[in-house]
Write a protein that binds this DNA or RNA. Structure first.
Length: 506
RNA sequence: GGCGACGUAGCCAAGUGGUAAGGCGGAGCUCUGCAAAAGCUCUAUUCCCCAGUUCGAAUCUGGGCGUCGCCUCCA
């Protein structure tokens, strides 16, 4: 296999070889739905989506597990003081997250295990750790004894002595060592709980991943992934738990996606400084967000700004236009040879630790060469390549177009044997200003204004039709005046042969 | 304080020893009455600074400056 991936565990790029030939087993740390998902989550899961798609493209069977930590301190805190049960809060946020992932074209995981559905496995794992002397039960719960695991800190490059500085035991915790972390937390009154040999309680953060990855995939995992911020302590603790029970390594390759910044600032749950993903996706084309993320290296931090998403939106349109041109190119000619060099570069980039930025640049190169490629008869070869490449990247150029078409209304006018189709946005009526009719009447001479439609949107289409007639008379001064009048109420008109479309806004 | 990442054009960004991908923006031209779209062309003698290694460095080494992240919940 020619794919090479960066491995956090070894800090180097290595050839990827699945433990079980032909089958890649991936575990990615998913969401803790105690708040709305944000764009940083989107970046992370979108990257692993591309990884999945590429491994599949390479002919591997991929089993992709992405857990849901559906019980933790935050979700309990979120429910406190409300009449809503914590489960409803968690499921609400998770459903919202799933909707957003779907809009972003992220494939569904093969398994999305919830921690609360694996309490038995979690308890069993903790019991085994206690039995082997890696964990101990005290009054408030069960803790993992970090000192019992000599390799602690290997993944994140820390050592126990340094970690000790600044570490402290919080009030109410009875752990023996400040570095120890909770495997099981005994429930306080009114807290959700499950029975266990140590008392009713809930799992600590980290243990659910050890238990569920073991149950669903076993060790070693081929790839264990998550965001950069999970390296410590989450993944370090997972390793300590799992490798205290099974032979190392827990995972052959550890992959971590770079964090997203929003207008130069870090996003985090504690700061609460982010726009929910769901509303952000209303303002921006999910496909453009995908392209934006793919144009940067997955391991590097990326700063999201209005300017950068605007640029990606424009770039996406160009890729779409090129793909459309290839698809509709005459089938004649079979010169697909020169597309091969683009293919080679594209897959070479992906093989190099998923260099999607380099891969995307190849598509732009081919798009820039579209006119000539079609002339050389390479249109269908280029179309096939584009289709293949875009599906690996998870970009579906046709998707938006279909949505747009579904949301438009058309009216056709005929005059002297010629016809004009006026394409208008489906939501135009609501978006047009209230005084649309008055302003059109004021701006356009009455003899040219025949408003037959019943609605504001119909009236605009009537003006577009009148403008078409004026153009055919070569009365450009009038035609331009009409476009100006439309512009004044926020309508932009675009002429094509036999068709004119208008939208509200730019 | 400890650990780590990064610093490439107006903005975003790839490239980690062989002479600066790509996107956005900008400029000019072609084509359309104009506009939009499309097409053509141009847009970093240079990669934070200084020193060094080398025939050769954005890429390696050392020093400096700056930005950010982790060390506490986080994708």
């Amino acid at each position: 296999m020619s794919l090479r991936l960066y491995n956090t565990r070894t800090r180097s790029v290595e050839p990827f070889e699945p433990h079980e030939p032909g089958h890649a087993r991936i575990y990615v740390c998913g969401l803790t739905p105690s708040a709305e998902a944000h764009l940083g989550h989107a970046r992370s899961f979108m990257f692993f989506d591309v990884l999945r798609r590429y491994l599949t493209h390479l002919g591997l069977r991929v089993t992709y597990v992405q857990n849901v930590t559906d019980i933790d301190d935050r979700s309990i805190a979120a429910a406190k003081g409300t009449n809503t049960p914590w489960t409803a809060i968690v499921e609400g946020y998770y459903a919202s997250f799933k909707r957003s992932m779907s809009r972003l074209g992220v494939l569904e995981p093969d398994h999305e295990p919830r921690a609360t559905a694996y309490i038995a496995e979690i308890v069993e794992t903790i019991a085994a750790l206690v039995e082997r002397g890696h964990a101990y039960a005290v009054e408030d719960g069960v803790y993992f004894a970090v000192r019992s695991f000599p390799r602690y800190g290997a993944l994140s490059g820390r050592n126990v002595e340094e970690l000790l500085i600044g570490a402290r035991i919080a009030a109410g915790e009875n752990k023996h060592d400040p570095l120890d972390f909770a495997l099981w937390k005994i429930a306080k009154p009114d807290e959700p709980s499950w029975p266990s040999p140590w008392g009713a309680g809930r799992p600590g953060w980290h243990i659910e991943c050890s238990a569920m990855s073991h149950a669903l995939l076993g060790e070693p995992l081929d790839i264990h992934g998550g965001g950069f911020d999970l390296i410590f302590p989450h993944h370090e603790n997972e390793i300590a738990q799992t490798e205290s029970l099974v032979p190392p390594p827990m995972a052959n390759v550890w992959m971590h996606g770079g964090l997203l910044q929003f207008d130069g600032k870090k996003m985090s749950k504690s700061l609460g400084n982010f726009e929910p993903l769901a509303t952000l996706l209303d303002r921006h084309d999910p496909q453009a967000i995908r392209l934006l993320f793919l144009q940067a290296g997955y391991r590097k931090p990326l700063n999201f700004t209005e300017e950068s998403i605007a640029g990606a939106t424009t770039g996406l349109r160009r890729l779409q236009a090129a793909y459309d041109a290839f698809r509709t190119a005459p089938a004649a000619g079979s010169s697909g040879g020169d597309v091969e060099s683009f293919r080679t570069r594209f897959f070479g980039a992906l093989d190099d630790d998923l260099n999607t930025s380099g891969a995307v640049s190849v598509l732009f190169d081919l798009a820039n060469d579209a006119a000539q490629a079609i002339e050389r008869g390479a249109g269908s070869a280029a179309s096939a390549f584009f289709h293949e490449a875009l599906s690996i990247l998870g970009i579906s150029p046709s998707q938006r177009k279909i949505v747009e078409v579904a949301q438009t209304t058309t009216r056709t006018f005929t005059d002297g044997g010629e016809s004009l189709t006026v394409v208008a946005p489906g939501d135009a009526e609501a978006r047009l200003p209230a005084d649309t009719l008055d302003r059109l009447r004021a701006a356009i001479p009455a003899e040219h204004l025949h408003l037959n439609g019943q609605t504001k949107a119909d009236a605009v289409s009537d003006v577009v039709k009148a403008r078409w007639l004026a153009k055919r008379r070569r009365d450009f001064a009038l035609a331009d005046a009409m476009r100006e009048a439309l512009g004044a109420i926020g309508v932009t008109v675009t002429d094509r042969k036999g068709e004119a479309s208008w939208i509200v806004g730019a």
